[in-house]
Amino acid sequence: MPFSLARAASSRVVRFGQSASLTGGQASYGKDVQNGIAAAFAAASASEGATGVRYELMTLDDGGERSRCLKNVLSLVDSGVTALIGLTSGAGAEACMPVVEDTQIAMLGTASGNMGIRSARASDAFHVRAGYDAEYRRMIAYAKDFGMQRVGVVYLGDTSKANLEAMTTALAAVGIEPKAAIAIDRNAASFDSVANELLAAKLDCTLFTANASPVAKIIDRMHQAKYPGLFYASSFAGQDLIDTLVAKRQSCVMSMVVPRPTAMGVGIVAHCQRDLALLNNGARLGITTLEGYRRGRAGCAQGRQPEPCAHEGIARRLAPGSRRLQGRVRRRHARLALCRPAGDRSLWEAGGVIATSALR
């Protein structure tokens, strides 16, 4: 079995590989996801020490670049990792799909709702969160509920066309045609021209599906220009956007994908905070570290199986009829989402989408 525990049977080490953006414009996001996974692995290794099972994470930096992510995945596969986990670039993960399919290594819990890795052809990608299609529908419904018709969309130019199609479909479903749709380079130094184009469109609502740095820069420029409309960012912006906007006392509604609250697992936030302390590296709790933690917990759940990352075993443990689990989609407008407990009765259960905002 190319991705079973047989790879590490002698030492009882279950070794996962990750390509993450540890530098560049997505560095905070990548480090948070990495810390969350590492915390879950550290806790599981400590609690299961008597059984001899140990979980290890090998992370390579891709700087948020698609080509570097592909290079890293090739290196990780060659190194003999049990599975891939928590890739932080949806575009990078999509570029890696031919390698993943060819080697039949499992790709678990990519930290993105990218629709390009959720097609029927992407049978080796297993998800622990809802896709952008579900998230975009909730974002659009929010704007529609408040009577907003002049909507603009800002998206990453290097991601799957399926993402833009999902957004366009969600808008069309409620009778909205975007007044502006702008592709951006996630690593660009300036976004003033983008902000100026959005301002010229006189929008009621600006929707973002991008990493935190460009979103924060565009919001800052439009805020200075006294933009009167609403900003709404997808979950990809992560904790970094919340921290940046709170520091500047600026506003943005933001969606987040979290586990469903259940009576069996309401302590996941407390567990994440506790286990982050095991890393002893100053990692702090936030929505992005929680995303990483959930992926780490999912990886540990697979590592306990006789054939931890064999496709057939994963498929059996997922909900009937679907590798891409759809969680209940919910929305809440609140100061912080982490004030609500969240659980993970099934670690292969996609979370619901909750909107929160950094309020002035």
Rank of each mutant, 00 (worst) to 15 (best):
T51R: 13
C309M: 15
V81D: 10
P2W: 00
E349C: 08
L241Y: 02
N35F: 05
Q239W: 00
D158M: 02
A93K: 08
P261I: 04
G131W: 10
R150W: 03
S346P: 01
D240V: 00
I287K: 12
A188G: 12
F41I: 15
V246R: 11
I184E: 02
L336K: 03
N211D: 07
D62F: 11
L241F: 02
M97Q: 15
V258P: 01
D32N: 12
S251W: 07
L22R: 06
I242Q: 02
C272V: 11
S45Q: 09
R137A: 13
T244G: 00
R121I: 03
G175D: 08
A9G: 04
G109I: 04
N281C: 01
K161E: 01
C96Y: 04
R138D: 11
M97R: 15
G351I: 07
S255A: 13
D133K: 15
H271W: 06
Y55C: 13
P178C: 06
E56V: 10
Y227L: 09
Y293F: 15
G25C: 02
T168I: 01
T159W: 04
A46H: 08
T59P: 10
G80P: 05
R15S: 14
K202W: 05
G238C: 04
E48A: 13
I219Q: 12
R66C: 09
D344Y: 08
I242S: 03
T289R: 08
S119A: 08
R186V: 06
G343F: 06
P178V: 05
I140G: 04
D192Q: 15
Y29G: 13
G90P: 05
R249L: 01
G24Y: 09
T59N: 14
G52R: 02
C69K: 00
P259V: 03
M115T: 14
F236R: 08
I242A: 04
A134M: 12
T51P: 03
P98A: 05
P259C: 03
L76E: 07
M256N: 12
M139C: 10
Q239Y: 00
A95V: 04
A301Q: 06
M148P: 09
A310E: 07
P228A: 01
R317V: 00
C309S: 05
T23Y: 13
V246T: 13
Q34W: 04
Y142G: 01
K179G: 02
I242T: 12
S193H: 10
P178W: 07
E291R: 14
L70F: 07
V33E: 05
Q250S: 04
S21P: 00
A125D: 03
R295H: 14
N72R: 05
G116A: 09
G116M: 07
A38L: 14
L57Y: 07
A93T: 14
A334N: 03
T168H: 04
I314P: 07
S193F: 06
A310Q: 07
V258N: 12
